[in-house]
């Protein structure tokens, strides 16, 4: 057991799976010699060669399309997209083929592809480098969407994603790539897809979050604990398929909920979570469910970033509001 960052945990997951399975191949821009712009693939080309850690042309659609063919032929491609804002050229391949091949061929051809995508704000980058548009991926049939929030989950979820018989879009909260350290086992282990994690038990309000927002929630929880308010905190971990029973169980206990995401508000995943709570736990509710989200604006450049991103203070305010209702 050693303390590792999220980046190190991901690197380890890739290395272990590549060593165990020759079918695992990485494709991406700058992932070879450079080790990826965030160094997630550092040292892997040296170890596994250029045929397995492919430095590719800048062609996001091309990489996903090619990965589809590789997967149909029995390989296990893992594509790295540099930033979520550059995923969009590949949406045609994702929506029209990746999520459909199993269904289209009635199970004859499958696409065990992982697409790793650093997402989210908080790193003060240029435009297009802060997107978190996970809701449109969750809206797409046939793909799983996974977001780790800790190094332990990052390693276990990525190994599960690589071993999954179906496509996974693996969103990596780049803001906390190196901000969080955690002791994790050296050996390979899996964290199941489709299962939320109850991060902290509390009685007053359920707070649902994922990725880097979890850490804002934990900060808010500390502030609120001083006021005698305890939170039941759920880290969704897999956004699609969503662990609705975990959400319902928590809301039935607390009767109040706040959903936190940094993505734009309208039709964000929070809207779906609120709808699920309404359908399945309405009578348990003591107050309307609140959403703490980004805005229906373009993600701002660094000078305004702090106003856009939900933070511990906004989350704490929302928790107090649902308690005061």
């Amino acid at each position: 057991m050693e303390k590792r960052t999220l980046v190190e945990a991901l690197n380890e997951a890739l290395r272990l799976e590549m060593a165990a399975d020759e079918r695992v191949i990485l494709l991406g821009e700058d992932i070879g010699k450079e080790g990826g712009v965030f160094r997630v693939t550092e040292g892997l080309q040296e170890r596994f060669g250029a045929a397995r850690v492919m430095d590719t042309p800048i062609a996001e659609s091309g990489l996903v399309g090619m990965a589809i063919g590789m997967a149909i032929a029995g390989l296990r491609p893992v594509v790295e997209i540099q930033f979520m804002g550059f995923l969009y050229p590949a949406l045609d391949q994702i929506i029209n083929h990746l999520g459909r091949m199993r269904n289209r061929s009635r199970g004859r051809f499958t696409c065990p592809v992982v697409i790793r995508v650093p997402y989210g704000g908080g790193i003060r980058p240029p435009e297009h480098h802060s997107e978190s548009t996970e809701a449109m991926l969750v809206h797409t049939p046939g793909i799983q969407v996974v977001v780790p929030a800790t190094p332990y989950d990052a390693k276990g979820l990525l190994i599960s994603a690589i071993r999954s018989p179906d496509p996974v879009i693996f969103l990596e909260p780049k803001r906390i790539y190196r901000a969080v350290r955690q002791e994790i086992p050296d050996e390979p282990y899996t964290v199941p897809l489709g299962k939320a994690r109850l991060v902290q038990e509390g009685n007053d309000v359920t707070v649902i979050a994922w990725g880097s927002m979890l850490h804002e929630v934990l900060q808010a929880a500390e502030q609120l604990a001083a006021e005698g308010i305890t939170l039941d905190i759920l880290d969704l971990r897999t956004l699609s398929p969503m662990d609705v029973p975990a959400i319902v169980a928590s809301v039935e206990k607390t009767g109040r909920a706040v959903v936190v995401h940094e993505a734009p508000r309208t039709c964000g995943l929070g809207a779906e979570i609120v709808a699920q709570i309404n359908e399945k736990a309405l009578l348990a509710l003591e107050a309307p469910v609140e959403r703490v989200t980004g805005f229906d604006t373009v993600f701002p450049l660094p000078q305004l970033e702090k106003y856009y991103l939900p933070n511990a203070e906004r989350i704490a305010q929302a928790v107090r509001r649902v308690l005061a209702f």
Partner: peptide, 23 residues
């Protein structure tokens, strides 16, 4: 592979299949 309707989207799949053969 099954018929692919979005025009021009499928040659990439052939490139991936061919890469797998070569690999």
């Amino acid at each position: 592979l099954p018929i692919s309707i979005p025009v021009g989207s499928h040659p990439l799949h052939a490139v991936g299949l061919a890469y797998a053969s070569k690999y």
